[in-house]
């Protein structure tokens, strides 16, 4: 069986998605909220999920695809257990966020946009998480870390490493 087979996800996940779709069916403007929830359920938005959403909401698949590719928040690739978002907003940039990115790339041995080999982390950059007073800032999941310096990076990462259930 190939990687892309439909058996990847459980029936339960699809059921959950169908319930979300039912909530928004017939309501105008439901596509983006449904995609948000779908990404929460599946972790990302592969083709088969896109098809399910398109059919469920009765919109063309091309439109679903068009929306997913437009918004940087939606991902068609699986992500690591944790997504690290280094803020590259202005406040963080003038306080040395570029060095934080470099330190992470070195520590995790990935480039921005990539996922570590063990599947722990995906490294991303974001534009301002609204904690500019604490610049430079990064987020891991919903946790925010501020007043960073490159040498604090290993310590921050340690809290998440090897925490797989």
């Amino acid at each position: 069986m190939t990687e892309t087979c439909c058996q990847r996800f459980s029936e339960k996940q699809y059921q959950e998605l169908d319930e979300v779709i039912a909530q928004y069916q017939g309501k105008p403007g439901g596509l983006i909220p449904v995609l948000h929830r779908a990404q929460l359920i599946f972790g990302y938005l592969p083709k088969e999920v896109q098809i399910r959403v398109a059919e469920g909401l009765n919109v063309p698949l091309s439109e679903v695809y068009g929306v997913i590719t437009f918004y940087s928040f939606f991902s068609q690739q699986p992500r690591g257990r944790y997504t690290i978002g280094v803020c590259l907003g202005t406040a963080c940039y003038v306080k040395g966020a570029a060095e934080i990115v470099e330190a992470l790339e070195e520590e995790l041995e990935v480039k921005v946009g990539e996922t570590t080999a063990n599947g722990d982390f995906t490294l991303m950059v974001t534009r301002c998480v609204g904690a500019c007073g604490l610049a430079p800032v990064l987020t891991i999941g919903e946790d925010v870390y501020g007043r960073l310096t490159a040498d604090k990076i290993p310590e921050v990462l340690k809290r998440y490493q090897g925490t797989a259930e």
Binding site: C87, L88, G89, T90, A91, C92, R127, C128, G130, A131, C132, G133
Partner: peptide, 8 residues
């Protein structure tokens, strides 16, 4: 939407 990076 507060897009200006550096405003919160």
């Amino acid at each position: 939407d507060e897009g200006d990076p550096g405003a919160f």
